[in-house]
Design a protein around this nucleic acid. Sequence first.
RNA 1: GUGGGUAUAGCUCAGUUGGUUAGAGCGCUGGAUUGUGGUUCCAGAGGUCGAGGGUUCGAGACCCUUUACCCACCCCA
Length: 454
Amino acid sequence: MEKISPRTLSGFMELLPQRQALFDKMAEILRTSFSLYGFTPLDTPLIESAEVLLAKGGGETEKQIYRLKKGDSDLALRFDLTVPLAKYVALHGNELTFPFRRYQIGKVYRGERAQRGRFREFYQADIDIIGDGTLDIMNEAEIPSIIYRCFTTLGLQKFVIRVNNRKVLTGLFELSGVGDKAGDVMRIIDKLEKIGKDKVLKLLEEDAGLGADQAEQIVDIVTCQERGDDPIEKLTALKGRNETFDLGLSELSAVTKYMGDFGVPASHYKIDLTIARGLDYYTGTVYETMMTDQPEVGSICSGGRYDNLAGYYTDRKLPGVGISIGLTRLFFVLEDGGYLNDEVCTAPADVLILPMTDDLRHAIALATAMRQEGLRVQMYAENKKFKARLSYADKLKIPYVAFLGEDEIKDGFVTVKDMASGEQTTASAAMIITALKDNIRRLSEGVPIREPKK
RNA sequence: GUGGGUAUAGCUCAGUUGGUUAGAGCGCUGGAUUGUGGUUCCAGAGGUCGAGGGUUCGAGACCCUUUACCCACCCCA
């Protein structure tokens, strides 16, 4: 019979076991970090009614969403975790306690053309804080500190969190008399880093219809940090002429001031007046995090403040702030840069037990005793040559192999081989277990996902 | 959606102006070594050259069609 050739779709990441184990460790580190800040875990369905997911309608979302029909139902795969959160909060608002802090790690789907570091199916790790009616500015400063902790705990150093405020931009555009072109201008400004000042000026004039002076003035202010100016100072000079602008400026000042107190060092964040993107529901503070070694891959983590999360589902006013870490992209970047640390233990077990006799009872009893003590144990009972069994442990990087042959059983002992050193020890099961627990703990301590800086 | 590139062994890739039986490294299997892996040595398996059509005495190579994948734009994690 002709076989169907196995394949994985473009834009879908599929990992071999050791890489998968590393990926899961990353996710675990994020979970632990999030819980340090008092976030509660949440899971929502991958599939929602198309009506719910497309509430906002139009634009890229509509083009990129995977839509499916099942019978008469019109369904869609979620393309982010924020819209499902909005639905969740609108639906369960009366049973939740606010401010509601939740984290969620899950797959999302975007039917766009795949590219370097861009996937159609990818993991997002989201944290959001939703207020009931109001939400203090402190939360907007706390969010980047969580990013900082997550990334550094992963062993990453070369990243920078860029912060901006949409109200500042909006106010600035109003001051310059940009009018209803604000959206276009914002999108073009956002390209500054990628295409450079000259092309941006050209686009501002040609596409957004700005005057040359107007464009020059905006670009001048927005790029001030590139020339070593303090953006807050530069902006303060424009104060008192536009309400939105003044509000944005005070928010931006507060956020950056508190960020230092939250422990984010100045080396790892900067005010960047050119970042504007993220989804268009952001209304205030916005964040974007890039790896400084691979900026071309784009943002690894973006987010911001939104004033009305669930407006499509409820009249209740629910302001929030949140970020989304592109876990799949982050993993890709680490792998692509050769940064994944091979020393991280990815073995599925701590000990491999090799029963050498037909009677498996002793081996099973040993495995049970070891598991009771928290050791991760596999038994290899396949009828293979001895070397094949050892090679199994070697390939899976299982650090210890326990032999149970006739001699060991007769004397009530176990022989354990340390695969790294090749050293073998024969002793009672109890002693072996105690020693292994110590060694395993030592092996797993303090090994970062990312290769230590050379 | 638009533009460009690639497709040869499980993986990464060679393959000369078209010419005998399509190669390498890694991986895999077996042996050296039946209670010792990772190193070394020896042997072996594995290919409708993405698919379909055409040109030719002869096509992995040239032409057409098609599919898939990759890269970039748009947009975005």
